[in-house]
Amino acid sequence: MTDETAPREAGASEARAYVFDAYGTLFDVHAAVRRHAAALGPDAQAFSDLWRVKQLEYTWVTSLMGQYRDFQALTEDALDFCFSRFPGVDKALRGDLLDAYRKLDCFPEVPAVLYALRESGAKIAILSNGTRRMLDEAVEAAGIGHLLDDIFSVDALKIYKTAPAAYALVTSTYRLAAPDIAFQSSNRWDIAGAKAFGFTCQWINRSNAPEEYAAFAPNKVVASLDGLLGSA
């Protein structure tokens, strides 16, 4: 009997599972503000950038404190900070922005890439800081639910990535060794955490950001998910 927890031998061409971060990787985190950019005014892009920065900061700070508020709550907290930082933006947009965040656009290549990888016979999953409700809504809005086998939310653990326990949600469920799982994220810090855990990592560097976390380098760097298909 084959031991499903044993890693494959070096040189194997395909992963047994392709696991994707959600926000920034499958779903465009700036789509919510972009839909209301005219109403937000000239600070729209800076507002969107700060919303994302503070959202992530709150996950790291609360995890380090040993505290937890779910990702929906932190997303709202970060948005409220942005309204304080940009007092010229109409606070009446709060509800519209939160509603838009629940229905973010996926990047255009996502459905075709997920379909192609699924055809390889591998498991296809999301591993995200988002709550299960947030992820279900985003997946439904994007119309990609039929391309996914599983959605893993750290909300089950009450701690955020890059905690090793977050990545272990996948290995424990699939009973696979970490190197047999290909992990994709647009967030370099997430790639560093996943690489430290042992995943085979592909950084989706959509913004041509500079390299960092040199001790935890990705196995591959691509500009979009289309770059995954050459190794599928």
Rank of each mutant, 00 (worst) to 15 (best):
10 A>Q: 12
11 G>L: 06
13 S>F: 04
15 A>F: 10
15 A>C: 15
16 R>Y: 07
18 Y>L: 03
19 V>P: 00
19 V>S: 00
20 F>T: 01
21 D>T: 03
22 A>P: 02
24 G>Q: 04
24 G>W: 02
24 G>P: 01
25 T>P: 01
27 F>P: 02
29 V>W: 06
29 V>A: 08
31 A>T: 10
32 A>F: 06
32 A>E: 03
32 A>R: 01
34 R>E: 14
35 R>A: 13
36 H>R: 10
38 A>H: 11
39 A>P: 05
39 A>D: 13
40 L>A: 06
40 L>R: 01
41 G>R: 05
41 G>W: 07
43 D>K: 12
49 D>N: 14
49 D>H: 08
52 R>W: 07
57 E>F: 05
58 Y>P: 03
59 T>W: 01
60 W>G: 01
60 W>V: 11
61 V>H: 10
62 T>M: 13
62 T>Q: 15
62 T>N: 11
64 L>P: 03
64 L>S: 13
66 G>M: 10
67 Q>I: 04
72 Q>A: 14
74 L>M: 14
76 E>D: 14
77 D>M: 15
78 A>F: 06
80 D>S: 09
82 C>E: 02
84 S>M: 12
85 R>V: 11
89 V>D: 03
90 D>N: 15
92 A>M: 08
93 L>C: 09
96 D>L: 07
98 L>V: 09
98 L>Y: 05
101 Y>A: 00
102 R>D: 10
102 R>H: 12
103 K>L: 05
103 K>P: 00
104 L>G: 03
106 C>T: 04
106 C>S: 14
108 P>N: 05
109 E>W: 03
111 P>Y: 07
113 V>T: 03
114 L>S: 05
115 Y>H: 12
116 A>K: 13
119 E>N: 12
120 S>M: 09
120 S>L: 05
121 G>A: 08
122 A>Q: 04
123 K>D: 10
124 I>H: 04
125 A>F: 04
125 A>N: 03
128 S>R: 02
128 S>E: 03
129 N>D: 13
129 N>A: 05
